[in-house]
Design a protein around this nucleic acid. Sequence first.
DNA 1: GCTTTTTAAATGTCAGACTTTTAAATGTCT
DNA 2: AGACATTTAAAAGTCTGACATTTAAAAAGC
Lengths: 244, 244
Amino acid sequence: MKIDPNSPTDLSAQIAKAIRDAIMSGALPVDERLPSEAELAEQFAVSRPTVREALKRLAAQSLIRTQRGATGGAFVNRLRFEDAYTQQITTSTLLLSMNDVSFATACEARYALERACAPLSAQRRTPDHLATMRAECFRQSQPGLTDEAFCASDVAFHRALVDGAGNPVLSYQLAGAVEAMQPLMNMITFTARSRERIVALHTNIADAVEAQNGGATAAALTALEAETQVLAQSVFEARAGKTK
Amino acid sequence: MKIDPNSPTDLSAQIAKAIRDAIMSGALPVDERLPSEAELAEQFAVSRPTVREALKRLAAQSLIRTQRGATGGAFVNRLRFEDAYTQQITTSTLLLSMNDVSFATACEARYALERACAPLSAQRRTPDHLATMRAECFRQSQPGLTDEAFCASDVAFHRALVDGAGNPVLSYQLAGAVEAMQPLMNMITFTARSRERIVALHTNIADAVEAQNGGATAAALTALEAETQVLAQSVFEARAGKTK
DNA sequence: GCTTTTTAAATGTCAGACTTTTAAATGTCT
DNA sequence: AGACATTTAAAAGTCTGACATTTAAAAAGC
């Protein structure tokens, strides 16, 4: 672990990289305690604030956690799927909003990934996953539901479908795709008529999952994707019409 | 943007969250300059080092960039797909290594996601993508190739397939899945015989992509997945046998 | 032996100073 | 007037030293 004081990059960035590499290589196992800030400062021949900045960088990526007190210090953190979810969602959301990704592109990616889960979920889903999907379908059919609540229920429905595959890696990957789409989806106001169609398509998906028919599940997802694209297009066109 | 000095969490974490929320809500647009560290310290009623720690947290997530000099400062950074790739790969790699994810689970997720790209890539791939895939197949068939080079070529092949879909969001999502699998794949030593089979399967994939046959591409990927799982299992069993 | 108190180690925070980088303002020469 | 050199100011980067707070272990007292 060495750093170059004459590098154009920050010392804190170099130190963070050195420690990050040590963690990724396995040299620092999970729950291992790093040297104290004072000791690190001495090792890297920098001041304590510089070391602290490096540690904060690592903490921002959930690579370490810190604990105060006598036996405290910085510890290599076991990266949990939930922690990774939040980061993934933050990153995906900003990627979409900052890079002029079209609704069509984001929607295509999202449903392509979700279809990847369809056969696995149809095969392995527990009664619990199915019950969640049915419950969300019912909630979505309730009149008087706000747009926000409808969208939240939509996310819960798809999450149950993805989780049904019983593969945490898939669930993690999909979390970004599904949740990051929400800000875009929220731009669409759902009319009573369009809600009705969406609930019908959701019900088709649930039926296919209940029948453990992977192909039918994928097909139903494709139908939902088409409906979503058409709905979005009509909303955007109406908006463009009003603007001029 | 307010913070609570009596909260159990760090002040720097609270300040980072406040600024992050402002960025995500769109209140701070891309390339907007944040107040100087001294001004931020005054606004949040904390010291400059504390503000700096907060800014380093944001820098670690590529949300801001800093510039020195007269017109310098911290600027909201346009999050690029390449920056997101690296973070995604770091996170995915650590998730797999720290959570005892089995090879089978990771492999299943990876190929499920890749199959999601198959129909789109078969339909849209440019001659360039196809040429890359053919070139990597050829390289993989060369004798005397090191295991590392074989793996790198493997990644390049699959990357070309994914990029062929022409959807940057998909490419981003798949980067994590494909690259993070590498450390696991590297645990497998490829014999001459297994390389031969893998190259044949890669060639099948390239053929299906060339014929723009999405279904055949997905089927060829499934065959490769099966071969990979069998290969891994035999390696692990041989290793377990030696251990006892 | 159990409870309470003390203590030490560690992070969290602050204040102030100095260094380095950078661009703009100013000055000077042709 | 325009081109070039110099000064200057603003900002991040870094360091020193100090104090506050938290926490668990060690010491003291009953």
